[in-house]
Design a protein around this nucleic acid. Structure first.
Length: 421
RNA sequence: GGAGAGAUGGCUGAGUGGACGAAAGCGCCCGCCUCGAAAGCGGGUGUGCCCGCAAGGGCACCGGGGGUUCGAAUCCCUCUCUCUCCGCCA
């Protein structure tokens, strides 16, 4: 969210940016409301000024033993006028704020322009894709065959796209979570455990609301939302706070379940674990000073990459184009892992710099060494999401005999074994 | 769930209807002193919005919202949160 004045002074820039991001904003209405608001504001302020002076006259009169009532008639009329002007002003401000909250963040100058994924840039690829001399089974087949995964019973218990993991499959999930958190805490991230339900303010703070309300699970009786990502509770940890610059950067890592409605997303493209309503994810969040945020983005991506490297899975790093950037992001890299059973690259991590966009919405500030208070920059990156990582493990590390090779890094979490069978 | 107490600036904390954007202290910034620092001394120190080229001026903000009043940090209602006690509970 940008300040109204900034929007007014940078209409052309923001308009172009929102078109690049495929976001619709009613700019004519914005200009019209803004102009009206300033007109009413001026009128209200002038009348209030007179009102104050009258009030002072009443007080002065009473202090010197007179009644002061002669001013009251005029003051009453003025008070009523102010009331009606303020009502209109409040409505205009609410409308304007609502419009402003739907203006997307500006893409960074280094972000390629483009409408869709075809304009994304692959910035690097890691590992080589080794072709197998047998047909790789898709993860849902090999997963069910080995008794690691049960999609049918998940559907019975909750509904379609709510997977269950069994036996060593469940151990693998738990092991992956521990492995990732330990990796990131060793790199200086502080582990946090946060609520999986958040309030409306938190959802607004990170930019999920107002735009994405339909994509969230919501508890109507309490007006709480199930988190779509740990980004929401972790970024909001410091909402409405001023952090001393000496404490920056702050690095956090959190495991949480994530919930997404993914309305109407069933089909071939989303079979098995590709797109599910509930999944597990380890997320990294950074609070940094504005000068350092782009450097911090690069090191955040590198930190996420360490997970895939340790899991011995080939992946590529993709720089998203403007049209693929999310509402709140200025710049974003995706990590995509190779799934040979599906013959597709799968997104397992998004690492974004939001600059001060979330910070302004959530009141996240820092006090510089000079004593100046300003908005800090926030970043987050998956480190990484589990279901698609499991797909890659089950498919890429699949052996001719139907067993699954376990990378060295995971073995301590699965009783030291080298293969799942 | 019930009863009570509370929420004031970066922090602690005064203020119970009019000259209060808000005492005092701490912190922070600038200066003096010093070889340098500490201590001491002096000065300064919130944010947002509107008008203005600027200088400057105006308005708002004492947890959120609403009300009473010519006028609210102060009185009333309501919500949220914190603390204490009771109840319930994995």
């Amino acid at each position: 969210m940008f300040p109204i004045k900034f929007i007014r002074d940078n209409l052309a820039l923001l308009r172009q940016a929102s078109e690049l991001k495929n976001e619709k904003v009613d700019w004519e209405r914005f200009e019209q409301l803004d102009q009206q608001r300033r007109g009413y504001l001026k009128a209200v302020e002038e009348k209030r000024h007179v009102q104050k002076q009258l009030g002072e006259k009443v007080a002065a009169a009473r202090n010197s033993g007179q009644s002061g009532d002669s001013f009251l008639q005029e003051a009453r009329v003025l008070s009523a006028e102010i009331d009606s002007l303020e009502e209109k002003l409040a409505w205009l401000e609410a409308e304007l704020t609502s419009l402003a909250s739907r203006i997307p963040n500006l893409p960074h100058s280094s972000v390629p322009r483009g409408k869709d994924a075809s304009a994304n840039q692959v910035v690097r690829t890691w590992g080589e894709i080794k072709e197998k001399n047998f047909t790789v089974l898709p993860h849902w087949e090999i997963g069910e065959k080995l008794g690691l995964l049960d999609l049918t019973r998940g559907a019975k218990v909750a509904g379609s796209s709510f997977p269950c993991f069994l036996g060593q499959g469940a151990t693998l999930v738990r092991g992956l979570i521990n492995f990732m958190i330990e990796l990131h805490t060793n790199a200086g991230f502080k582990e946090v455990w946060v609520p999986a339900l958040v309030n409306r303010e938190s959802m607004f703070g990170t930019g999920q609301l107002p735009k994405l309300e339909e994509d969230m699970y919501r508890l109507k009786d309490d007006d709480l939302f199930l988190i779509p990502t740990a980004e929401v509770p972790v970024t909001n940890l410091h909402r409405e706070e001023v952090i001393p610059e000496e404490m920056l950067p702050l690095y956090y890592v959190a495991y949480t379940p994530c919930f997404r409605r993914e309305a109407g997303a069933y089909g071939k493209e989303t079979r098995g674990l590709v797109r599910v309503h509930q999944f597990d994810k380890v997320e990294m969040v950074k609070f940094v000073s504005p000068e350092s945020s782009y450097q911090e983005l690069e090191s955040l991506v590198a930190e996420a990459e360490k997970v895939l490297q340790a899991l011995e899975l080939p992946y590529r790093v993709v720089l998203l184009c403007t049209g693929e950037l999310s509402f709140a992001a200025s710049k974003c890299y995706d990590l995509e892992v190779w799934a040979p059973g599906l013959q597709r690259w799968l997104e397992v991590s998004s690492c974004s710099n939001f600059e001060a966009f979330q910070a302004r919405r959530a009141g996240l500030r820092y006090r510089s060494r000079k004593g100046k208070v300003d908005y800090l920059h926030t970043l987050n990156g998956s480190g990484i999401a589990l279901p698609r990582t499991l797909i890659a493990l089950l498919e890429y590390h699949q052996q001719a005999d139907g067993s699954i090779y376990l990378p060295r890094a995971l073995r301590p979490y699965l009783g030291g074994r080298e293969y799942l069978s």
